[in-house]
């Protein structure tokens, strides 16, 4: 009996540990987000938060619905696979509300040279020119139709 008495002071310590463990379990049940673990070791609601971001680029199919004439012209030339927003910038707002949101036409002086100014790192088969020499001070769309720029596909203006 006296041996137990001499160890009795360890009981409050053990009790504190048990209490701590219980409090921890209770805290977890209360505070862990409910959707955690729904799909995996992460908060399931995060997926919905991510997928509900607004679109900024509409995607070329959205444009083609209303602009079939441009699509037809593009399909004949070398820019057939250049998507609309690649040059025209993001247009989801315009696709949502075509009447009130009018897109700004791209700035020809900077747009075309970004792809077509010659650079040793560009693939050799890719059409590239020394812009100053080639354009002689004129804007690219003076001679080239942007939607179908090649002269042999009816692109000359």
């Amino acid at each position: 009996m006296s041996r137990f008495k001499d160890s009795a002071h360890l009981i409050p310590v053990a009790a504190l540990f048990v209490l701590g463990a219980v409090a921890f379990v209770a805290l977890r049940a209360a505070v862990i987000p409910k959707s955690f673990g729904r799909y995996g070791p992460y908060r399931g609601d995060a997926l919905q938060e991510i997928t509900s971001r607004p679109l900024v680029y509409a995607g070329h199919e959205a444009c083609e619905g209303c602009h079939p004439d441009v699509l037809e012209m593009k399909a004949k030339g070398v820019h057939a696979h250049v998507n609309c927003e690649s040059c025209h910038g993001p247009l989801a707002k315009h696709a949502d509300d075509p009447a009130s949101v009018i897109p700004v036409k791209p700035d020809v002086a900077t747009l075309c040279v970004r792809c077509h100014s010659e650079n040793i790192a560009k693939p050799s088969g890719f059409p590239q020119v020394d812009a100053k020499e080639h354009a002689q001070g004129q804007l690219c769309n003076t001679c080239h139709q942007p939607h179908s720029p090649g002269f042999d596909t009816g692109g000359k203006k």
Binding site: S2, R3, K5, D6, A8, H9, P12, V13, L16
Partner: peptide, 9 residues
């Protein structure tokens, strides 16, 4: 922690 037992044991 509530105990005052500092006997040799």
């Amino acid at each position: 922690l509530g105990s005052a037992n500092i006997s040799a044991g």
